[in-house]
């Protein structure tokens, strides 16, 4: 019996010969001039826990220590989710398959959740159909990210631009979140 099993291989999905399945009918939704709702591009995701500096070195990105803030660098984004917790988003195939960082934990969450993008001037109001946070730019500025709720589901909400939000949701809640956004979109 080996001391340690081979670590999971972190494989970019597009390197696989198998079609990746989205957990819901991800048709884009357009309300002209007001809202565009579409799936986020394919992303690799890691949950990072523990020592910020060790993790920063391992992933070539200084992790944000200010609560509820995201940083982007080198084509990667690190979203602060808790005092020792970050969500690392990157293009598929760009993350080195390392999972062992001293004083830290790294877990592949690439298939645990999916991303949705809401763009357009109505995006904050449509999100307000289920999110109890104040999404005014003075209260939820560009670069802010947080776990929160949307209706009866938990989401991670990240404001990438004044009128662009990135929503991360666990895959089995994605159909609900997408359905509620669709329902709320006509305002």
């Amino acid at each position: 019996m080996p001391d340690t099993l081979t670590p999971d291989r972190l494989q970019p999905r597009d390197a696989l010969p198998i079609l990746f399945e989205l957990p819901y009918d991800a048709r884009p939704l357009v309300v002209p001039g007001r809202l565009l709702l579409h799936p986020a591009p394919d992303l690799a995701r890691l949950v990072l826990r523990g020592d910020a500096s060790a993790l920063g070195v391992a992933f070539s990105l200084e992790l944000p220590t200010q609560p509820c803030r995201a940083v982007e660098a080198n084509g990667r984004s690190a979203l602060w989710l808790g005092p020792d917790e970050w969500l690392l988003l990157a293009s598929p195939g760009t993350l080195v398959p390392t999972v062992s960082v001293p004083g830290a934990a790294v877990v592949d969450a690439g298939h645990r959740q999916v991303g949705l993008i809401l763009e357009g001037p109505s995006a904050p109001d449509v999100l307000a159909a289920g999110c109890p946070l104040d999404l005014h730019p003075t209260a939820f500025p560009v670069g802010m990210c947080t776990r929160t709720v949307f209706g009866k589901a938990e989401i991670v909400l990240w404001r990438q631009d004044n009128a662009r939000f990135h929503v991360e949701v666990w895959r089995s809640f994605a159909a609900y979140v997408h359905g509620l956004l669709e329902r709320a979109a006509p305002l």
């Binding site: 399945e21 957990p23 159909a129 289920g130 209706g151 009866k152 589901a153 895959r171 089995s172 809640f173 159909a175 609900y176 979140v177 359905g179 509620l180 329902r183 709320a184």
Partner: peptide, 18 residues
């Protein structure tokens, strides 16, 4: 509000549901 019909509660399905 929205909490009726299919949106009453999240309906969680597995990747093999389809």
């Amino acid at each position: 509000g929205y909490s009726r019909g299919v949106l009453f509660d999240p309906v969680r399905t597995t990747p093999v549901h389809g």
